[in-house]
Design a protein around this nucleic acid. Structure first.
Lengths: 117, 117
DNA sequence: TTTACTGCAAAGGGTTTGCAACATG
DNA sequence: CATGTTGCAAACCCTTTGCAGTAAA
């Protein structure tokens, strides 16, 4: 499979990239991989589910740019500085709620280079 | 309606809180409100859609705690300091991609007080 | 009456599942 | 022969939509 992409793929894209594979198999296998922690399942802007390699596998932590106009969802490599800030923020916010943070998600929503005026 | 909650509500909860209102009306009206910018539609952990008052209406910017065990989704008030850090991080990350950030989302995923060991 | 909104029930679209055929060891 | 994986099609669930009935102006 081809989840070595620089952005989460929709099921549609996954199927297009693997001709001949029926939906059911794709869903089934991706679900298994997701359960095994190899793949992560996320949501786009408001439409369909998407799949990406888990951080453990891809080897890099990243966030997302989400374009509200064309629906594009791209990865943004997280910098050490940003991560430090986010991690601390997470700890602070979660502590007072007694919440144990396992991971955080930081997504930027707006207009991509091709859609901005 | 009762969107003065401290957390996003699922359609199920919305319906439960407004007995007698049929799904179709709830969906329809919430969609209209969403389009008008009064309500915001978001996604929980991986399951169903949820609704919350838009920031403009609720008057406060917040993020979410998402419990992977029980599915709970709670609001976390954003602090000025955190916001400053996030905003700057957003700008930095987005700029090099030519992305125009309209809003950011920062969610903490993990275990809530009731589910953590 | 004209316009807008309700309720119901049917349709839609993404995702899951049952089950028999098939490959693997 | 025993086990696990495929493909197909039907089932599911959440959400949307058509349409006629009702309330409001």
């Amino acid at each position: 499979m081809l989840a070595g992409s620089d952005r989460p793929l929709t099921m549609h894209e996954v199927l297009a990239s693997a001709p001949g594979v029926p939906q059911s198999s794709a869903y089934r296998n991706l679900s298994i991989l997701a359960e095994a922690g190899v793949v992560r399942r996320i949501q786009g802007a408001d439409d369909n589910g998407r799949f990406e390699l888990a951080e453990v596998v891809s080897g890099h932590h990243h966030h997302h740019l989400i374009c509200t106009s064309c629906g594009l969802m791209a990865d943004v490599r997280a910098t050490a500085k940003l991560e430090r800030a986010l991690a601390e923020a997470a700890r602070t916010a979660a502590d007072e709620a007694g919440f144990l943070v396992v991971e955080h998600r930081f997504d930027l929503v707006g207009l991509c280079a091709g859609c901005r005026p």
